[in-house]
Design a protein around this nucleic acid. Structure first.
Lengths: 134, 134
DNA sequence: ATTGATATGTTATAATATAACATGTAATAT
DNA sequence: ATATTACATGTTATATTATAACATATCAAT
C-alpha cells in the first residue's frame, strides 16, 4: 500500500486541517485548544495525531520552537528530512523546497565516516519583509 | 572586554566542568543530579548556567534531544551556529568542526531573499563504529 | 563607598510530552 | 461472516523540560 494514498483517521485529519489552514507553526497545546470544539479533549490525542502526520511527512516539527507546521513541499510524503528558514524578527517560518542539501550533507558526513540518513536544518536570520523595516 | 577571557561564575564552571568531562550530551535534570553534591539544588541554577554557557559558545543544545553538550571546537567562543552528526544506533554526537557550512547556508538563504545569521544542523545516520556492527 | 549590572537561592508553577490500560474500529485471512 | 490482527481512540495520571517571581548576594566600575 503506497503511502501516498494512505487514509488519515479522523483525529489525524482534524489536526492536519488546522495546520494546513494556519500560516505559521503551532504548538501542541495551541492545536489542542483550537480543536476542542471538534471533540478532541486530551494532549495525547494531539500528540498521537502529530506523530503519525510527522511519520508520513505531512507535518514537520520545528525543534527549536517545539512547534509543528504543515509540510509545504507538495510531495514530501514519507520524507523526514527538513530544512527551514526562521525569521528572528517576525518568527515567520519557510520550508526550503526539496533541493540538493541532502546530497551535500551526505558528502559532508562521509568525511567523518558517517552514513547519512536524514537531517534537520534550521537557519535563523531576517526575512525579506523584515529586512525592509530595518 | 573580549569574550575569550570572560570569567565564569561558580555555577557556570561547575556545569561546564561536568559537560567537558562527559563524552556525550546530558539532559538538564541529569546535570542537576550529577552536581547536587556541589551544592546546586534547583533546576533553575542549571538552566541559568546553561543559558550563559550557550551564549558564550562553550555549550550547545542538541534541540532534537533536549540535551546539552560541551563545545568541541576549541575556539568556538561566542559562536552560536552548530552542526552535529547524531548516530541513530548508539546516540553518539559529533560536532562538525568549523567548516564552510555557514557560507553555503548563507548562499542558500539569499536565494529566498533571507539574510542568514546562524544555523542549527542535526544530521542523523550511522557512525563509523556502528556501521561495522551491521 | 556607591552604584549598577549580573548572578544566586528559593519556591512555585508553566509548558511540553509520555505511560498505562481499557475500549473501539476497520481491514484481512480463514 | 466471523475471528484475527493491527492500529487508533479515550481517559486518567504522571513524567519531563523549562520559566516566573522575588528577595538577596556579589563584584566590577565609577
Amino acid at each position: 500500500m503506497p503511502l501516498l494514498t494512505e487514509k488519515l483517521t479522523s483525529n489525524q485529519q482534524t489536526v492536519l486541517n488546522l495546520l494546513e489552514g494556519t500560516k505559521g507553526p503551532l504548538k501542541a497545546y495551541a492545536i489542542l485548544f483550537d480543536i476542542q470544539k471538534k471533540g478532541i479533549k486530551s494532549p495525547l490525542q494531539v500528540y498521537r495525531a502529530l506523530d503519525k502526520l510527522i511519520e508520513i511527512g505531512k507535518v514537520h516539527k520545528i525543534e527549536s520552537k517545539n512547534s509543528y507546521i504543515a509540510c509545504s513541499n507538495n510531495n514530501c510524503n514519507s520524507q523526514t528530512s527538513t530544512s527551514f528558514l526562521i525569521c528572528e524578527m517576525c518568527d515567520k517560518v519557510t520550508e526550503l523546497k526539496k533541493n540538493n542539501l541532502s546530497v551535500y550533507f551526505s558528502k559532508e558526513s562521509e568525511k567523518s565516516n558517517f552514513k547519512y540518513t536524514k537531517h534537520n536544518l534550521e537557519i535563523f536570520g531576517i526575512c525579506q519583509k523584515c529586512k525592509k523595516k530595518i
